[in-house]
Simulated assay, not measured.
Amino acid sequence: MEIRHLECFLEIVRLGSFSKAAKVLHISQPAASKMIHAMEQELGLPVLYRQNRNLTLTDIGQAVFERAQPIVALFHGLHAELEDVAQARKGRLRIGLPPIASSSVFPQVLGEFSRLYPDISVNLYEFGSKTIEKEVYDGMLDLGVICSPSDNSEFSTLSFIKDPLQVIVAPSHPLSERTLLSFADLAQEQFIMYREDFSLHDAIANRCLQAGFEVRCAYETSQREFMTQLVASGLGIALLPQAICATLSPQQLRAIPMTDPVYLELGAIWRRNRYLSFAARSWLDFTKEKLAPKNIK
C-alpha cells in the first residue's frame, strides 16, 4: 500500500466524494476508484460502503482512517521540508475555511496570493471552526481560518478581522422598525442558527443564556444564502456579520445593530512546534500584510 493510496482514501472520506477528492489530488475519478480498489484487494476487506451517492466507512475503513492520518501528515511534513531545503518556491497548501469567511475579504486575498505565488497549489476545505481545529491538530490541514480563535497552547494564532453581528429580520417582522436591539429583545424569537460545529453557534447560544433564555432554534445551516432565504421567508431571525449585512437588499431583509453584540473574530491557526512549510509561511506573511492583524501570539 502506497502513501498516495492512503492520501486518496483520506481525501475521499473527508470530502465524501470520489470526484471532489480526485479534483483536489489532480487525478481522474477512475484513478481514485482504482486506488481504493487496490487498497481493498490488499486488505481483503472493503473500506467504504457505497449506497446510492452516499459513502460510509466500514469497520476496517474506520481503522485505516484513524491510523492513516498521522502517517500522511508526517509524509506531508517531510515532503514540505525537503522542498524548502531545495529552495523550491512551490508547494501545496491545505487551508480550512468556515463558509462565513467566503463573504469576507478572503476571496480577494487568496486571488492575489495565487497570482504572486503561481507555483503554490492552494486547496480550500470548507468546515466549521471546531472541525478545522481538529484537522489542523491532526495534521490534515496546514492552516485553518476559524471564528474566535482562543488561547490554546497547541496552536499559534494570527488574528485579523473583528466584525459585530447584527440581527436580520424580514421587512414584515415586528422588530423590523427597531434601530437597536439587545439579546433580551430576542427571547421569544425563533433563530436560524449556524451548525453546532461552528463556534458562532456556541457564542450566540451562550449570550442568549446570559440574557435569561435558551435559544429556540428553527433551523441550522452552514450556508449563508440559505440562512438569509429562510429569514426572508419569515421563518425566523438570524445574526450575520455587519460586513455581510451591508450587502443585503433592504427590500428583502432588515439588518439591526445590537447593543451587546457577539463579534465574528476571524484568525488563522497552525499547530505549534510543527514544521511550517515555505508555502504556509508565505501565506501567513502575505495575509498579515494585507489584513493588518491586531496581534500575533
Rank of each mutant, 00 (worst) to 15 (best):
M1I: 11
I3S: 08
H5Y: 12
H5A: 09
L6N: 11
L10M: 06
I12K: 10
I12C: 14
I12T: 13
H26L: 07
S28D: 11
Q29W: 04
A31W: 05
A38Q: 09
P46I: 14
R53H: 15
D59W: 01
I60M: 08
Q62G: 07
F65A: 07
R67H: 13
A68W: 05
Q69K: 04
Q69L: 02
H76R: 11
L82H: 12
A86R: 15
R89A: 14
R89G: 12
P98R: 05
P98A: 13
P99D: 14
S102E: 09
F106V: 14
S114C: 14
D119T: 05
D119H: 08
I120D: 12
L124V: 02
Y125S: 11
F127H: 01
G128V: 01
T131E: 14
I132E: 06
Y137L: 04
Y137S: 06
D138T: 01
G139I: 03
L141P: 00
D142L: 09
G144H: 05
S148H: 00
S148M: 00
D151W: 11
D151G: 08
N152W: 02
E154G: 00
E154V: 02
F155K: 04
Q166W: 02
H173A: 08
T179Q: 01
T179Y: 01
D185M: 11
A205D: 08
A205E: 06
C208M: 09
L209A: 08
Q210A: 13
A211H: 04
A211V: 05
A218E: 15
R224S: 08
R224L: 07
M227D: 10
L230I: 15
L230E: 15
G234W: 07
I237R: 04
A238K: 12
A238S: 15
L240E: 10
Q242N: 12
L248R: 11
S249I: 09
A255Q: 08
E265T: 05
R271I: 01
N273F: 03
Y275D: 07
Y275V: 06
F278Q: 03
S282G: 12
W283E: 04
K288I: 01
K290E: 14
N295M: 11
